Amino acid sequence: MSNNIANLNTPGYKSKRVIFEEKLKNIMDNSSISLKTTNKNHINDGNSMQNINPQTLQDKSKSLRLDGNNVDIDLEMANLAANQILYNALVSQANSRIAMRRAVINGK
């Protein structure tokens, strides 16, 4: 997203998207306990986070602009806002879990 925003005024630039959520979801859904390997000779269950390879897709659709750039700033800003909301929610959840564990440890 930030790459698309940075190239908003670059003539001929085509927007790009990174696809990895579906791969991450599949690995998380299909593995109950993931084996950690520290040596190349260790047995691997195939569901390692190392097997997630993000894919970059370029939007080759036609542009409404004369310079050939197809970046839609409104879409990019909406996606940026959605990611910010998700990030803030995850940070808040992590902080809550840490606070709960701290309370249990301290006995308060």
Rank of each mutant, 00 (worst) to 15 (best):
P54V: 00
S31K: 09
I105N: 05
S2G: 00
Q58G: 07
M49A: 08
I85P: 07
N4D: 02
L90Q: 14
V104E: 15
A103L: 12
N44L: 01
S34W: 08
K62P: 03
H42W: 09
I27E: 03
N41Q: 01
L35S: 12
R97G: 11
N9E: 14
Y87M: 13
K25T: 11
V91P: 08
T37H: 01
G12H: 01
K36D: 07
A81S: 13
P54F: 01
N44F: 00
M77C: 00
N95S: 13
K16Q: 09
S2D: 15
D59H: 03
N70L: 07
T37D: 04
N26Y: 09
M77A: 06
E76H: 01
T37E: 00
K23M: 08
V104W: 14
R17E: 14
A82Q: 12
I85W: 06
K25Y: 09
N9P: 02
L24V: 14
K40I: 09
S15N: 02
H42S: 12
A81E: 10
T10G: 10
D45K: 00
K14E: 12
F20H: 12
V104P: 09
N9Y: 11
P54H: 03
I52S: 02
M49W: 08
Y13A: 04
K60I: 03
N69F: 00
L24H: 03
T38W: 06
K60W: 10
N41F: 12
T10H: 07
N79W: 08
S31Q: 08
M100G: 14
L80Y: 15
S32G: 13
I5N: 05
I52T: 00
L75E: 15
R97K: 05
N51R: 03
H42D: 14
D72H: 06
R101L: 15
N88S: 13
I85V: 11
Y87D: 05
Q55C: 01
R17F: 13
N9D: 13
V18Y: 08
S96R: 15
M28A: 14
D67L: 03
L90Y: 14
F20V: 04
N3T: 09
L66W: 06
I85S: 06
S32K: 11
I5E: 09
R65I: 00
N4F: 04
N7P: 03
I105H: 01
M100S: 13
M77I: 11
Q55M: 10
K23N: 06
D59Y: 04
M100L: 15
R97V: 12
S92W: 07
S92C: 09
G68Q: 07
Q84E: 14
A82L: 04
A6S: 10
I105R: 10
E22I: 08
D67C: 00
T56V: 03
Q93G: 05
K60L: 12
N79S: 14
G12I: 12
N70I: 10
S61E: 05
A81R: 12
K36V: 00
N69G: 11
N95E: 06
A78L: 14
V104G: 11
